[in-house]
Amino acid sequence: MKKLVLTGAAGRLGSYLREPLTKMCDELVSTDRVDDIGTLYPGESYVQADLSSLDAMLEVIKGADMVVHFGAIGDEAPWDDILQSNIIGAYNVWEAAYRCGVKRVVYASSVHAVGMHLKTDTIGLDAPHRPDTYYGLAKCFCEDLASLYWDKRGVESVCMRIFSCAQATNARSIGTWLSYDDLIHLVERSIDSPVVGFTVVYGISNNDRAVVDNSKAGHLGYRPKDNAEVFAKAVFADTPPLDNKDLANLCIGGPFATVELGNSGVAALGVVDDRKET
Rank of each mutant, 00 (worst) to 15 (best):
N170G: 09
D182H: 00
L186Q: 10
V187T: 05
D181W: 02
N170P: 08
W177N: 02
I174R: 10
H185I: 08
L178E: 03
T176P: 00
W177S: 01
H185E: 13
L183V: 07
G197T: 06
D192R: 10
A168M: 02
D192L: 12
I191S: 08
G175T: 04
T176S: 04
H185Q: 14
D181E: 11
D181Y: 02
E188T: 11
D181G: 03
V195A: 12
E188M: 07
N170F: 10
L183Y: 04
I174C: 10
Y180M: 13
T176Y: 02
I191Q: 06
A168C: 10
T169W: 00
S193M: 12
D181I: 04
T169E: 04
A168Y: 00
S193W: 01
G197D: 03
E188N: 14
P194T: 08
I191N: 07
V187H: 07
S173R: 13
D182A: 03
S190A: 15
S190K: 13
N170A: 09
E188H: 07
S193E: 15
D181R: 09
S179I: 03
S179P: 01
I191V: 13
S193P: 05
L183W: 03
S173W: 06
I191W: 05
E188Y: 04
H185R: 15
N170R: 10
D192S: 11
L178G: 04
I174G: 11
N170E: 13
W177E: 00
R172A: 09
L178I: 04
T176L: 00
Y180V: 15
R189F: 09
S179D: 03
P194K: 09
S173M: 10
L186W: 05
V187R: 11
L186T: 14
R172N: 10
I191F: 06
I191L: 15
H185S: 13
P194L: 08
L183H: 08
L178R: 01
E188Q: 14
I184Y: 08
D182C: 01
I184H: 10
E188S: 12
R189A: 12
L186A: 15
L186S: 09
